[in-house]
């Protein structure tokens, strides 16, 4: 195995270990006990929290900021595609066929979305004041991976650069804010439990 692949492999295992560590700590802390008598049901509320509660027509963070919201959605889809492509390449599957042009184009667009989000964070004073280096580094790393994946799908000779870039991101994921990948689902679950018990979600 060449050293770049070793590096990416080590990074992948570090990333998975780190994310599992966060996940198991979550499980270890457990759900806080709630002795109040519920007014509603938790399961439908948790389902609602993970689905219809995120309808952009319902959330001001979406419909009041449609360009940013759309860029964010495309960016996240690009991240999932990048991750899937990485796993496939890591498993030595490189026969993407003509679909690689479509994937490459999408990742190029998602990289542009990431860059746009980064520029907004730099240019808007309120966002700048809210941000710390982790916010910028996370955005830059993910955007770079989208871009390099887009190029590598067309030019396989860039594998060394690709594995190093992806490896750096994978090492970083459990250490910075990108670990919200794990906590996002926990937060939505907790919201479902909270609003479900109180009969707020799903809406009557």
């Amino acid at each position: 195995m060449n050293p770049y692949l070793w590096f990416a492999t080590a990074a992948l295992f570090f990333c998975l270990s780190g994310c599992f560590y966060h996940f198991f700590r979550l499980l270890e802390y457990g759900k806080p006990p709630d002795l109040s008598k519920p007014l509603g049901e938790i399961k439908p509320a948790v389902r609602y929290a993970l689905t219809r509660a995120m309808d952009p027509r319902k959330k001001e963070s979406a419909y009041l900021h449609l360009p940013t919201y759309t860029a964010g959605i495309v960016y996240h889809i690009g991240s999932f595609i990048s991750m899937a492509v990485f796993i496939l390449i890591w498993l030595r599957f490189v026969q993407f066929g003509p679909s690689r042009f479509f994937l490459s184009a999408f990742l190029f667009i998602s990289a542009l979305c990431g860059a746009g989000i980064l520029i907004k964070r730099i240019v808007k004073k309120e966002l700048r004041n809210l941000s710390n280096p982790d916010d910028y580094i996370s955005n830059i790393l993910v955007t770079c991976v989208h871009a390099i994946t887009a190029v590598t799908l067309i030019r396989f000779s860039l594998f060394p650069v690709y594995f190093v870039t992806a490896g750096i991101l994978l090492f970083y994921i459990p250490l910075g804010k990108i670990r919200h990948t794990v906590y996002f689902f926990a937060a939505r679950y907790q919201l479902g439990v909270f609003y479900g018990r109180r009969g707020v979600w799903p809406p009557k």
């Binding site: 979550l26 457990g30 806080p32 900021h65 919201y69 966002l127 804010k177 919200h180 906590y183 907790q190």
Partner: peptide, 22 residues
């Protein structure tokens, strides 16, 4: 006094700032 709910929410914010207008 830490529990799963507090732990989740402390680690979730991505500083998007889109909560402002709410």
């Amino acid at each position: 006094r830490m529990d799963g709910k507090l732990f989740s929410h402390l680690n979730s914010c991505v500083h998007c700032g889109l909560c402002a207008e709410s």
